[in-house]
């Protein structure tokens, strides 16, 4: 596991396995929540595996209750996974000879959706940004310098905005502060959990541009969680679609958006609004709400809303398929698997 010499000028001394080694591998992550008083469990994240490559943006798409926020918290060990393992840049997370949780959190950081709730209302934003470096043992002066440099980087003048309290900032400015806070420990990977969803459209564009700009300059890797397909398509190289705690489709963004292989992905894409008043959607692509993850359907979890569901979908859960490399495009649907028993198998 010696450091591989790299040709790029951006070589990061912390980069251990070189650019080909994935930044993060998650295997079989699982987290159920037991419901009080009842014998049931919410299967929030159920056997989720994926790989994040260095320098890419992996978009995670899904509706409320699909487990995408739980997944984000599992990756940072804010919630402890009940099964599964994670490998960060070649090191097994939490293992004796691997990388510890504290070290992982130095390298992976998170930006939350609610820009207001994720800042301490009683702290000037400069102190919120400096909190991480201080906790990591930086001196007060150094932490403050870090904070001011970061404010500058996210486009907020440090002298004007540093001393302000969160309520004195607009939503977009607060989210910039949250991004600066996430960057304060110099992470290599940032998890963005619906980071632009609550913003006005024009502010969303500003923050997306900022995120792209920071990624280029700081050589970051993003896990971008969102329910907005337009945003995910714009910012991601690869996309992972989740439904009721499971991965239903995974592949390069262009392939997934051009030729979705799972009927749920197709429905999600068709549910996008058109921006053209002359071409309105006349029939909703899906009926009903996403079912509750408490008692998820047997077999394929999407079958209750799927227009193509057959008997085989109720009896057997479709496998996600074999994932080889970053160009692989796989879907957990019997129709995508030859010889699965579905009449449309292999056709779509």
């Amino acid at each position: 596991m010696s450091a591989t010499p790299m040709s790029t000028a951006l070589a990061d001394p912390r980069d251990r396995g070189g650019p080909a080694q994935p930044m993060l591998i998650a295997r079989g992550l699982r987290r159920y929540f037991r419901l009080k008083g009842r014998g049931q469990a919410v299967r929030a994240v159920d056997d989720v595996s994926f790989t994040v490559f260095k320098g890419e943006t992996l978009g995670v798409v899904g509706e409320s209750g699909c487990g995408k926020s739980t997944l984000a918290r599992l990756l940072l060990h804010l919630l402890v996974p009940q099964a599964g393992e994670m490998v960060f840049d070649g090191d097994l997370v939490g293992a004796a000879r691997g990388i510890g949780i504290a070290a992982l959190r130095q390298q992976v950081q998170m930006v939350f959706q609610d820009s207001a709730a994720s800042l301490n209302p009683r702290m000037p934003v400069r102190d919120s940004i400096a909190f991480g470096p201080l906790a990591a043992g930086q001196s007060r002066a150094a932490a403050r310098q870090t904070a001011e440099a970061l404010l500058q980087q996210v486009g907020l003048r440090p002298d004007l905005f540093g001393p302000r309290y969160p309520h004195e900032l607009s939503g977009g400015q607060k989210q910039r502060v949250n991004i600066a806070r996430a960057l304060a420990l110099g992470p290599r990977m940032v998890i963005l959990d619906e980071a632009v969803s609550a913003l006005d459209k024009s502010v969303e564009a500003q923050v997306l541009n900022l995120l792209r700009d920071l990624k280029r300059r700081l050589n970051l890797t993003y896990l971008f969680i969102s329910h907005d397909l337009n945003v995910v398509r714009y910012i991601s190289e690869r996309v992972l679609v989740m439904y009721l705690g499971q991965v239903v489709e995974l592949g390069p963004a262009t392939a997934v958006f051009a030729a979705p292989r799972h009927p749920y992905t197709r429905a999600l894409l068709a549910s996008r609004l058109s921006m053209d008043a002359d071409r309105r959607t006349l029939e909703p692509p899906l009926q009903g709400d996403p079912p509750s993850p408490i008692d998820a359907p047997s077999g394929c979890r999407f079958r209750t809303r799927c227009p193509c569901a057959e008997a085989v979908c109720a009896s057997r859960a479709p496998p996600l398929g074999h994932w080889e490399d970053r160009a692989s495009h796989i879907a957990a649907c019997h129709m995508a698997t030859q010889g699965s028993g579905h009449t449309l198998a292999g056709a779509g």
Partner: peptide, 22 residues
């Protein structure tokens, strides 16, 4: 359970530090 406490935990701060500051 507010996000800023989670964010502070994610930044590797100790419980005592989070209690004192947040």
């Amino acid at each position: 359970h507010l996000d800023y406490i989670e964010a502070a935990r994610a930044s590797g701060a100790s419980a005592a530090r989070i209690l004192r500051h947040h």
